[in-house]
Simulated assay, not measured.
Amino acid sequence: MKQLKVIIIGFVLFGLFGFSKKPLLTVKEEIPTDFYFVIEDGGNDYYNSQNNNFHRKYVKEEKVIKVKLTKDEKEKIYSLILKIKFFEMPTKFESTDKKNIVIRSPSFLQSILIKANGKNKLVSYNTGFTSNKNDEKAKPFLELYNKIWEVLYKKEQVKKMPKSDYFYE
Rank of each mutant, 00 (worst) to 15 (best):
K57Q: 14
I112R: 03
G42Y: 00
D45H: 13
I39P: 01
L16F: 14
L152I: 14
K74W: 05
H55W: 10
V12G: 01
D135T: 05
M161T: 06
D34L: 11
Y166N: 15
D34I: 08
E75F: 02
K139W: 05
L144K: 00
N117P: 02
I101P: 07
L4Q: 11
M1V: 12
E150Y: 04
K99E: 15
V64A: 10
I7V: 09
Q110K: 12
V123C: 01
N48W: 01
S49Y: 09
Y145S: 04
K22W: 00
F108W: 00
S79G: 04
K147C: 09
L13S: 01
I77K: 00
Y125T: 11
D45P: 10
L113F: 12
K139F: 11
I101H: 09
F19H: 08
N48S: 14
Q50R: 15
S164C: 09
K22L: 01
N100V: 06
P140V: 04
T70E: 04
P162G: 15
N132C: 01
I39L: 04
Q157P: 05
A138G: 08
F141S: 01
Q157H: 03
Y58Q: 05
D72I: 03
I7A: 12
T130V: 08
T127F: 03
F11L: 15
K85H: 06
K83T: 09
K115S: 14
Y153W: 15
E136P: 05
N52H: 14
S131G: 01
K28A: 06
Q50E: 12
V27K: 14
K139H: 11
P32H: 06
V6F: 14
N53W: 05
E75A: 15
K5D: 15
L142Q: 10
E40Y: 09
S79F: 08
G15L: 10
K63R: 10
G128Y: 09
K163W: 10
G128M: 06
Q110I: 13
F87R: 03
D34W: 11
K21H: 00
G118T: 09
V12H: 01
K76M: 13
D45C: 13
L82S: 13
